[in-house]
Amino acid sequence: MQVLMIEDNESVCKMVNMFFKKEGFKATFSHDGQQGLDLYKETPEQFDIIIVDLMLPSLDGMSIVMAIRETSKVPIIILTAKESEADQVLGLELGADDYVTKPFNALTLMARIKAVTRRSQATEKETVADADTLTTAFFKISRSTHELFFEDTPVAALTPKEFDLLYFLMAHPRQVFSREQLLEQVWGYQFYGDERTVDVHIKRLRKKISTDTHAFIHTVWGIGYKFDETE
């Protein structure tokens, strides 16, 4: 596991690095936003996951996430202040796969890293193994090309997690899933209370695929969400 951690608090980096070494992870650290992005751009294929703080000198974490997402689907975990819910939501909307609030327990971060990369690797293997394409009355979605079409018209680009979530729901039409189930199936683990992550992604998907007559993704109050073209 090759980790790039962009975090300006050197004490935090030293503490986390002890856990990285214990797990056999190789880590590269940067304490400056622009320098961290430059390190990534030099050898983007080198890193298996990016961990980035949102508050950084010279270049903020949001800008780094956006820059990386222009060219790569590499897993990204953002580090945010506990009270900064708006930053957490925005980070997910921009394409981060997960967030960890500061101050954090290093064991929690390690668990998130393993879960995010495990899900990413599983998705890559599925894509290589087959070219599953789902076709419905309105949509066509392809894992091999990572494309979504609405009545033969390309839909605005989806983030990796938006795509995975939509594909999962479309593969189980009219079946209702709780937030916990979606976190487990799409993210590969539970957020233990951070279920609004699902809500954020559902909201983004609705903006991209809903029409005046069809919502496609429906809320089943008190239970969760389902994909249904018949309603």
Rank of each mutant, 00 (worst) to 15 (best):
M5Y: 10
I6R: 05
I6E: 05
E7N: 02
E7A: 03
D8R: 04
N9Q: 14
S11P: 10
S11N: 15
S11R: 15
V12P: 06
C13H: 07
C13M: 10
K14D: 15
K14Y: 14
K14N: 15
M15C: 12
V16K: 11
N17G: 09
F19M: 11
F19G: 10
F20R: 08
K21T: 12
K21A: 13
E23H: 12
E23K: 14
F25L: 14
F25C: 10
F25V: 11
K26E: 14
A27I: 09
T28D: 13
T28H: 11
S30A: 15
S30E: 15
D32H: 03
Q35R: 13
L37M: 02
L37E: 00
D38G: 05
L39V: 11
K41D: 05
K41W: 09
E42L: 10
E42H: 06
E42F: 07
T43H: 14
P44D: 02
P44K: 02
Q46W: 01
Q46K: 05
F47Y: 12
F47A: 01
D48M: 03
D48T: 05
D48S: 09
I49T: 03
I50N: 02
I50R: 02
I50W: 07
V52P: 05
V52R: 03
V52S: 12
D53E: 07
D53M: 05
D53K: 04
M55W: 12
M55H: 12
M55P: 08
M55F: 13
M55K: 13
P57L: 00
S58D: 15
S58K: 11
S58P: 07
S58Q: 11
S58L: 06
L59A: 06
G61C: 00
G61A: 04
G61L: 02
M62T: 09
S63C: 09
S63M: 10
I64R: 06
M66T: 12
A67W: 03
A67N: 05
I68Q: 02
E70N: 09
T71H: 06
K73E: 12
K73D: 14
V74G: 04
V74Y: 02
I76R: 01
I76L: 05
I77W: 03
I78C: 01
L79C: 05
L79V: 06
A81M: 08
K82Y: 08
K82R: 11
E83M: 06
E83G: 03
S84Y: 10
S84A: 12
E85L: 13
